[in-house]
Nucleic acid binder design. Structure first.
Length: 592
RNA sequence: GGGCCCGUAGCUCAGGGGACAGAGCAGCCGCCUUCUAAGCGGUAGGUCGGGGGUUCGAAUCCCUCCGGGCCCGCCA
């Protein structure tokens, strides 16, 4: 954390000069002296001196960290050259997770309706949520991952209804969630659909009583095979029917009714309904009233969301958990009618839901605030990601206009296998490597872009193995691993033999922790993904460096001491890439 | 009508007050008797959507306009 130490030193020196602020240390451009630098123009007005003079004064006052070799004023900038030995030592230091801090972060992601197979729209949700959970865990947070199962929803009801209505029996050939999903699509294409509402209602009620849980579970288990194939991790399942049974909604309403902003109008548009006035918390609303309970007595879906959020943050309790029997996640627990009582009491939650839910999510925060917990409202973060287009077009689950995750995984594996057959026919475990590469391509494609940007899922790009892709990073890792495998005996490292090439690579290695912390802070994995691309590029450049047409940086055949230094850096790089990929839920193959 | 987000190279995107705007793909030219060429180097390509403002300094902040997406139901 060289950069942080520099920032600290600068902060102290500035304090002596009468300024209490923190400057950001950036990398110096290649054509400027030094490794890092800070611009000082902003201080000119405050200190009434030209930036050049400030640079000189700051230089004189700085209590230099021992690793700084030279402080160089350059115009209005103050640059720092790091002592090569210290730079290398820092780069060689093994990276470790940050120490644990207090407080639980609860991440909800996936939460797919248990009524059909997962499609590529779900992919972004899972990749973002799972990566973020891993990053936060590494960054020192205690993380609990929750997957919500809406087993009392209309979608599940329609699928179960369709299976019965059409008298469909599963022949075991098709994956069960695909089979069930086809029934759902068929129902929506059926001209008789409007006349089938009664039957659907009946199923809906049975679901609310928790009677058809096994039917839903069967679909869920099939979906879970896909989640597992995506290398997503979960700690808890929470079923909507359990929430209903535990009466969380009623408990939440009782809390909300304490608020003067929740009431039952006796006349007008909202007569007889229980409404919430969100205007103190969400400014600029045309109509600040939101119905929590309809005049007919039924709760709205955001009332349910609010109740669930209250439970997550410990404002109410009543759910029970037990081990969840399944072949994929041995430690997974599920809510159930009976079992151990458990309430997470998270002070921070992250709900991974697409941007179209921004408004309801704002209502959830408003409800926390008007329940008297503005600090919990602060801690309730909505990771709002933009939707995924399919080859430029909006997807639709009902119409079956989507590509399934299973299909994409299979296609990616086929393509990866073909590349391996071609490039590395002697590969000892082709299928396994193909699976890793396929997963790397898909998950990386989902997290390399900022969440708030809409992405277009195109086969050609998402399954590409070249350029800014997961496999590019995996390849750099495999290359590094290959060198380490062949190294066998190591002698003593001699830092003094370092060339500018080693320096460059070391400098790139130093940014890993910053990237992880920023990803955790901003709650966006793309920062880490972009860093891993940069780091891989640095290594590939190092690997390919040539002088006069000859390799400039051979590792294995380098003179003793330098060889070990290079091996050390390669090992550090290999481990950093592996760790970084793992934080994106992507495996790092040793051979590709 | 009200609100949120996006607009950077032909395409897909990084960069979100500071040192000449960077990658990948596509194009062109090179590099495998060398640790994996899924790679590397070079070349070409930009009014950072338009205009105004703030600032010593704006792709970055503010205003406005244009283009695109989304949300605003006693549906979920």
């Amino acid at each position: 954390m060289v950069r942080r130490a520099l920032e600290e030193a600068i902060r102290h020196a500035l304090k002596e000069m009468g300024l209490d602020l923190r400057l950001k240390v950036a990398k110096a451009p290649k054509d400027k002296p030094g490794d890092y630098g800070v611009p000082l123009f902003a201080l000119a007005k405050e200190l009434r001196k030209p930036p050049q003079a400030i640079a000189e004064e700051l230089k004189a006052r700085l209590a230099l960290p021992p690793f700084v070799e030279e402080v160089i004023p350059v115009g209005g900038y103050l640059n720092f050259r790091i002592r090569t030995k210290d730079l290398l030592k820092e780069a060689l230091r093994p990276k470790e997770p940050f120490p644990k801090r207090e407080g639980l972060v609860l991440i909800e992601h996936t939460s797919v309706n248990p009524n059909k197979e997962l499609h590529v729209g779900h992919l972004r949700n899972i990749a973002l949520g799972d990566s973020l959970a891993r990053i936060l865990d590494y960054a020192g947070r205690r993380v609990l991952v929750l997957n919500y199962i809406d087993d009392t929803g209309r979608q599940a009801a329609e699928t179960l209804f369709a299976l019965r209505h059409y008298g469909l029996t599963w022949d075991g050939k098709e994956k069960y969630d695909h089979f069930a999903g086809n029934a759902y699509v068929r129902l929506h294409q059926d001209p008789e659909y409007p006349n089938l509402q009664g039957g659907i209602e009946e199923i809906l009620h049975a679901l609310e009583r928790g009677e058809l849980r096994e039917d839903v579970n069967r679909i869920l288990l099939a979906q879970m095979a896909t989640m597992k194939a995506l290398n997503a991790h979960y700690d808890l399942l929470v079923w909507e029917s359990d929430i209903v049974r535990a009466g969380l909604l009623e408990k939440a309403l009782r809390i909300l009714e304490q608020s003067p902003h929740v009431f039952r109008p006796t006349e007008g548009k909202y007569a007889g309904a229980l409404v919430m006035d969100a205007s103190p918390f969400i400014p600029g609303l045309e109509d600040p009233y939101f119905v929590l309970v309809r005049s007919g007595g039924a709760a709205t879906y955001y009332a349910k969301d609010i109740a669930f959020q209250f439970w997550k943050m410990g404002l109410l309790e009543g759910l029970y958990f037990q081990p969840y029997e399944n072949p994929y996640y041995p430690a997974l627990r599920t809510s159930a009618p009976q079992g151990e009582p458990y309430t997470p009491r998270a002070r921070e939650t992250i709900n991974v839901i697409d941007v179209r839910q921004s408004h309801p999510q704002a209502l959830v925060r408003a409800a926390l605030a008007l329940a008297g917990h503005p600090e919990l409202a602060e801690g309730a973060f909505h990771l709002a990601y933009e939707t995924v287009l399919l080859e430029g077009k909006q997807m639709s689950g009902r119409k079956g206009l989507a590509v399934s995750v299973d299909e994409v995984l299979e296609e990616a594996e086929r393509r990866a296998l073909a590349v391996i057959e071609e490039k590395n026919p002697d590969h000892p475990a082709k299928e396994e490597a193909a699976r890793m590469v396929a997963l790397g391509a898909i998950r990386f494609a989902m997290v390399k872009t900022e969440p708030r940007k809409q992405i277009d899922f195109r086969y050609a790009e998402a399954l590409s193995f070249e350029g800014d892709t997961g496999p590019y990073v995996q390849y750099a890792h495999a290359r590094a691993h290959s060198i380490l495998r062949k190294a066998r005996e190591w002698g003593e490292i001699d830092l003094a033999q370092a060339t500018p090439y080693e320096r460059e690579l070391a400098l790139a290695l130093l940014d890993f922790e910053e990237a992880v912390l920023e990803a955790a802070e901003e709650k966006t994995p793309h920062v880490l993904a972009q860093y891993l691309l940069d780091l891989s590029a640095s290594f590939n450049a190092y690997y390919n460096a040539k002088e006069d047409g000859r390799p400039a940086t051979p590792v294995l055949t380098a003179p003793p001491g330098l060889r070990e230094l290079r091996l050390g850096l390669v090992r550090s790089l290999q481990e950093t890439l592996k760790t970084g990929l793992s934080l994106l839920g992507i495996p790092a193959p040793e051979v590709m």
